[in-house]
Write a protein that binds this DNA or RNA. Structure first.
Lengths: 323, 323
DNA sequence: GAATGTTACTAGAACGTTCTAGTTACTATG
DNA sequence: CATAGTAACTAGAACGTTCTAGTAACATTC
């Protein structure tokens, strides 16, 4: 299991180190015949190019860092699939880092990506402060996904509009007491809150807001205390929280979509499942990832001097929790 | 944004390159006073050690590769949390790679980890053939999670027993036509199938097996054709598939846990949610991850000559789909 | 006061690639 | 037939660290 290097292959194949490198990178400069010969020797010896050495030596080996906030939330899997569907086509590498419940972990994860010398970072769901995010943006090329910050390239869904869509639907169904289960740590928090507030107030109603955290269990508890205030409809900041609301309703003997309407946000596969059938705002997570990846690739090409921000238009997916 | 290296810091601080390295690694050999001075200069210049260079030069900088099969399945998030709860304590680095729907992608991901020169790989949910897995095990130190293969260190739950537990519960509830919704691509497939088959036959009943794939939507379709055969209970190979079964039942107007019992496998947070309240086998994914990480750390210490396999005892979590 | 440590530091090699600047041999052009 | 161009290849520097083997200064021991 001792490491075999490019030198071993070069010696065994009777060519220079450089030629082996050229062959393995698939760049022009080697004849088909010798390339095959080199590969054959390499395979026999069990040669695997050392990625660390390659990344150290190479000016043009582009690697893209991807940060995902929470593996327990399927939204990030959707975003990642979108990213990979674009990056996978190019010959760039992805280095992955993921967040955790621990506060400040996202900053640590970005530091690791920077230390890995990635050329650009796509960060989905950052929860750090605007100030801290801006500081990172000066140190590295950064594309923020789902979190919008001035002066930083970002790909987001229009959370304000999404919230208005959701609440608008509830209003059109005749609701007069519409609550919002909010998570101040969520990326789109302020926009969704604004959208909710504006929609409610424009309809001549008054806002009813309950704050909660990332965890579904906590969302369920907070939903229960919200339900005690007898809203006729509840808009939740994301699908996981909406599930908490549905749970809380069911354990009170209330029927979602009949007794109390529920609308979520994210359109995860969870909400699509018929047993839950959650009405939800679709931010188009997969497309979000794709657009972010396109911007990242653009930054690799042109050096990334110009700020690029994409805002997608969300849609409302109507299912049975608010038919 | 031009890169500042250890040389820049050394020059500015008036010390040697080596001393800066010593200070930043936190190893003994530098006085407290100069260390502080070095850090101060480093901070001012914005120095971030190049991880690629460090990994290339260092013999003892241990990095652990982690492979997760499917970000859409929360089991892997649980396993990863377990891994990180152990590795995070040590000063080892984690390099992450994730699978995809694309066939053969897990092999590619492992190749990338090997190329990154990780010292040991923890792979959760590998779907490659036994032969291919064995070949990888000769090339690198490998700990397989949820997938058990002879001659390879692994951490698994006793899938055979888990299946027997599940089916045993259904039998004790008086069921006489118990079906199994199986996914041949699942890691524990053969064991779960054996457990199901043995339990059913020992009870004097006959097996009824329907195969499906990873996707929840496909599981729903296959569940529907299974339901047409009028089983009184259905055991699904994992929670996602069980959700598919529940969906199929609901859309036929049948009530899970009343008309037809349903049991899943994984005890993901999905199954815990009251609205679903899925009876399921708990393989203890978090502990699985922890044990795998412990073995990996052991391998780093002792060179990993000896084979180590842990098998956890699953429990049955009884909820309302099979009360 | 010589031997022995110990602490704080340094010079230079090493890690395994890629890149730059060639060199050689052969082919096409006018 | 000289010139230019191209394809196939090479030697050696470069990337930014860590490691090995040392040195100098000073304290401790008998």
């Amino acid at each position: 299991m001792t490491k075999v290097t490019i030198n071993d292959v070069a010696k065994a194949a009777g060519v220079s180190r450089a030629l082996v490198s050229i062959a393995y990178r698939g760049v022009p400069g080697v004849s088909e015949a010798t390339a095959q010969h080199i590969f054959q020797i390499g395979k026999k010896l069990g040669y695997v190019p050392n990625l660390n050495a390659a990344r150290l030596a190479s000016k043009k080996l582009n690697t893209i860092g991807v940060f995902l906030q929470d593996l327990h939330n399927e939204v990030f899997a959707d975003v990642f699939d979108g990213i990979r569907s674009v990056i996978g086509q190019s010959d760039n590498q992805i280095v992955l880092a993921v967040g955790s419940a621990e506060a400040g972990h996202d900053a640590k994860a970005l530091e690791t990506l920077i230390a890995s010398q990635v050329d650009v970072i796509i960060a989905a769901g950052l929860t750090m402060s605007d100030a801290q995010l801006l500081k990172f943006a000066t140190r590295t090329k950064l594309v923020s996904v789902t979190r919008k910050v001035a002066k930083v390239s970002s790909v987001t869904s229009d959370d304000y509009m999404g919230a208005k869509l959701a609440v608008g639907h509830l209003i059109s169904r005749g609701h007069s007491k519409i609550a919002f289960l909010a998570n101040p740590q969520t990326d789109g928090y302020t926009d969704r809150l604004r959208g909710y507030r504006d929609a409610v107030i424009e309809a001549g109603l008054s806002p009813l807001i309950q704050e909660t955290t990332y965890s579904r269990v906590q969302a369920e508890l907070d939903a229960a205390s919200l339900i005690a205030k007898k809203p006729t409809a509840i808009f939740a900041h994301n699908d996981m929280a909406a599930l908490g609301v549905v749970d809380a309703l069911v354990s009170e003997g209330l029927k979602p979509g009949v007794d109390v309407d529920v609308v979520g946000f994210d359109n995860t596969s969870l909400s699509q499942t018929p047993v839950l059938a959650l009405t939800t705002v679709d931010p188009q997570s997969h497309t979000l990832g794709q657009e972010a990846a396109k911007i990242a690739l653009g930054i690799l090409k042109n050096g990334g001097k110009k700020l690029e921000s994409v805002q997608l238009t969300p849609t409302l997916v109507i299912r049975s929790t608010a038919p």
